[in-house]
Nucleic acid binder design. Structure first.
Lengths: 412, 412
DNA sequence: GCTATTTGTTCAACGATTGAATTATTTGCC
DNA sequence: GGCAAATAATTCAATCGTTGAACAAATAGC
């Protein structure tokens, strides 16, 4: 109850307007119907006069539009609904993963306005070439966005690995990347890296983190605190606490793939023993189900597994049950530690959720002391496999919605 | 980097002053020498005029005093140093644990101004009687505080168990408490429960959480994010993230004692198997070292262990090494998950740290993927065994320092 | 066509910060 | 001892943003 909550900086007069711009815009973004100025006044506690002034700024800055077909009321002057501009700034989301490249554009309201998925095995491709291909796709996305009246304000890139503050990919084991300086490789592509005032520079982040952000901002909005597990070739987790992604001291939180599920178990290439990845990683499940990995392109492995399980194949069912149990041990650990009430299975786990959830819930019931008093929900992700790219793009527009003053005050 | 950070409420004009009061007071609290108004102006970015006005409010509210012996400078009018008032509001910290009761008083600056420890086995004592005894000690503490010119503004109680928002102790296994409604039992003691404006009502919280808060606010200040492990009869952890205690969705985070260290291992009374408590709990260590529990009062068990280990007793050394290894597995899990760079061993672990740290560090090195790039520090707590009570009292005064406007505007 | 009702805007007043000018107090130097 | 330089703190008019009340706009119901 007592977060020290050190005020970041001096509160000057302009801070008031900054705060209220964010407050009002946030309300508009969160509302499910276009609110009127009067609605906003009662919702925020501000005066109608203040709300009018703030909304005027937002309209002038093209972050908000007035919805022409006024929502009907009983009597009195009809209200004019306010909605997030659909011609305003948008975010560009990029993802490099083991077997695909994704580019997408998300507008202020969180709608996906453009999406490209390019399937290819990226492991044999040099990082620079992969990024060059991504830049090409981004160019098409930019053109498509412009056609729709959108301005790309910033971009974020999701990578299945550990990224430091400077955008250096320290290690992406399943992709075979090590110490790849993404910003340097993209330096020549001004369109991606040029610094726009009011928006963070090109953000490079872990795929699992950005997928969790995507889930957080999906409609209907997820809970304020949850664990999002991305079951790709590796297993990563994004931790959302109180509506904010928790990145850890260096940005490397969520390395759930190497939680010890069985400390004396199989050795893992990370150096530990009995890591979760050895029991619930995609390759481990596929192998346990008796499918030869060679005959299956990575992107169809989970689909094939789901098919087999659906048909009642005992090998697949057993493999999924065992994987779910291992996953459940790890999830129980996290829930014990962080007291979360929601766990989202994303990435490759989403289609397998019907078979993974029961054993995960069983382990939680047996291992979590507090589960008796309040239940833990385990559910599949609502976003598709492009969750990370959508989350990346969404993080850009969310930044603008959370701090509209920065965007409004840009020179332009 | 994009915490949605929804502004709590409307920013009215008064909010400016509230924010700046907190900003300036926070600076005064964090400074290591009494800063002048001019120092504060440059440090905060506010004008000297504003700082003067803000400081005037703080002086009038008796939260801050001018330090008479002005700190010397080169030339020019001498500055008047500002310090937290040592006659102002103070916090009362209470703790009920398995084998002691503690009461302490902490002033605005975080100094412990009163301390009482009453050793007794509380397990056979009814909760109401234990609390009655605590209230008696609190009365003495209040009198002592008054003698020193301090006003007790609020109180917090640490309990070794799970506490819900309403102060109901759902389960304190090692104390034998279940569903103890602390606020109801204390209702007649107005002095503890009366609501003071600007200060939270009597807070009841987990002992491990409050001990972590104590460590966070100790001098020199701890890091902004760390894990604090309280190794009492049970094992609890307090998780501090970005300078704030993370309590979880229901306030039950940090249940590290039941992390599975060996999923197929010894059954635990929690229902799981191979829980950390079975390998690194105080009773487990004592038993492994070959000490009969019966002949040792609980509070001397760790001291005796440290003695034996110091003397080179092979049984004690092996027991501590094994416990440290189990603890290391759990700590590695947490570090992988949250990417923390500091782990503090508190409670009964503090005196055993010389023998526990090496195996803990070894497990971290082997199991934490990112340990190679940046090291994890494991160190004993700087506070004594009363960390939880001090943290409890400190949480009260911290609340005032973080939101001085509430305290200043109380009717008085 | 009139009234009640609700929305949105206008405007004087107020509170808080700002920046410059002013006052206060000491050191250093002649 | 006296004077200039330097630093600290306060005073005051100006400015910015919010407030509250009054006012204008637009609709439903009678």
């Amino acid at each position: 109850m007592s977060p020290t909550h050190a005020p970041a900086g001096a509160a000057r007069q302009g801070s008031l307007r900054e705060l209220n711009l964010a407050l009002v815009l946030g309300r508009i973004a969160a509302a499910d119907r276009p609110p009127s100025r009067a609605d906003l006044a009662t919702a925020t506690g501000l005066t109608r006069a203040t709300v009018s002034a703030v909304v005027e700024d937002l309209l002038a800055g093209r972050l908000v539009d007035e919805a022409e077909p006024a929502p009907r009321a009983g009597a009195g002057r009809p209200a004019r609904g306010l909605v997030l501009a659909d011609q305003g700034p948008a975010g560009l989301g990029l993802e490099v993963n083991v077997d695909y490249l994704t580019v997408c554009v998300v507008d202020l309201a969180g709608q996906v306005r453009h999406r490209t998925v390019h399937r290819a095995d990226l492991r044999p491709v040099a990082p620079a070439d992969a990024l060059a291909h991504l830049v090409e796709l981004a160019g098409q996305a930019r053109a498509d966005a412009a056609r729709q009246g959108l301005t790309l304000a910033g971009a974020a890139l999701a990578v299945p690995g550990l990224v430091d503050d400077a955008g250096l990919v320290r290690l992406a084991p399943n992709l075979g990347w090590r110490d790849v300086a993404v910003p340097a490789l993209l330096a020549e592509h001004q369109a991606l890296t040029k610094q726009v005032p009011g928006v963070p520079a090109l953000v490079v982040d872990n795929e699992a983190n950005l997928a969790a952000l995507g889930e957080l901002h999906s409609r209907p909005p997820g809970p304020a605190s949850f664990l999002h597990i991305s079951g790709e070739v590796g297993i990563g987790a994004g931790i959302v606490l109180d509506g904010a992604l928790f990145r850890g001291v260096r940005g490397w939180s969520g390395e759930i793939g190497h939680l010890p599920v069985n400390p004396q178990g199989r050795p893992c290439r990370c150096g530990g023993r009995g890591c979760l990845e050895q029991y619930a990683g995609q390759e481990a499940i596929v192998a346990a189900a008796g499918l030869a990995r060679a005959e299956l392109p990575a992107d169809t492995a989970t689909a094939r597994l789901a098919e087999l399980a659906d048909a009642g194949d005992p090998g697949a069912l057993r493999a999924l049950h065992d994987a779910g149990t291992a996953l459940g041990v790890a999830v129980a650990t996290v829930v014990n530690l962080l007291d979360l009430d929601t766990v989202v299975l994303g990435g490759g786990y989403a289609p397998l959720a019907p078979w993974l959830c029961p054993p995960v819930l069983a382990e939680i019931a047996g291992r979590v002391l507090t589960a008796a008093w309040s239940p833990v929900t385990v559910r599949p992700s609502t976003l598709g496999p492009e969750a990370a790219a959508v989350g990346a793009a969404g993080s850009v527009v969310r930044h603008i919605v959370a701090r509209p003053a920065g965007w409004l005050s840009r020179p332009s």
